[in-house]
Amino acid sequence: MARKLKRHVEEAAGELNLVPYMDIVVNLILFLMLSSTGLVQFGVINVSAPAIGGGGEPEEQKDPPLNLTVAISSKGFFVAGTGGVLPAPGSSTEPSIPKLGDKYDYAALTKKLIEVKSAFRNETKVIVTGDPGTAYEVIIGVMDASRQDGPNNILFPDVMLSPGIAQ
């Protein structure tokens, strides 16, 4: 009886019982933390498929198109353009940028594309293609390597995907 009276007096004095509110807040926080991806930064890469036939707006180009293509094979990268494939040092059948052990050499690809860019300043397009079994991660790596070298040196940001090489 005395305890009841005491509680009544406390409540009347303006003491708010925060425990139910705490329960709700804790549950909400747990739910949001498990379902939210707010702490992970997602981004996107713009990609387009090459136009087939006469679709799309006609482009006025003084120079012939470069058609810069990076083909991903199991041995490395083949870099090609209108007129031919950039040869590997010392061999015409090996990829332009061979693999470094088991890993693809993205730094060498960027270096090679900087050379291409210095010769074709206005070109922004690159076609990416590859073996049917090429992993998506490698394609993203090639897009990164061909997009830019550092924050200010933009290389070939317009990426087009082309169906794989049939072997």
Binding site: P132, T134, A135, Y136, P163
Partner: peptide, 17 residues
């Protein structure tokens, strides 16, 4: 396109086509 990093290029091009 939200794809797994090991997705094969063939599957990707099929979906895009």
């Amino acid at each position: 396109i939200v794809a797994d990093k090991d997705t094969k290029f063939e599957t990707l091009t099929d979906v895009l086509f």
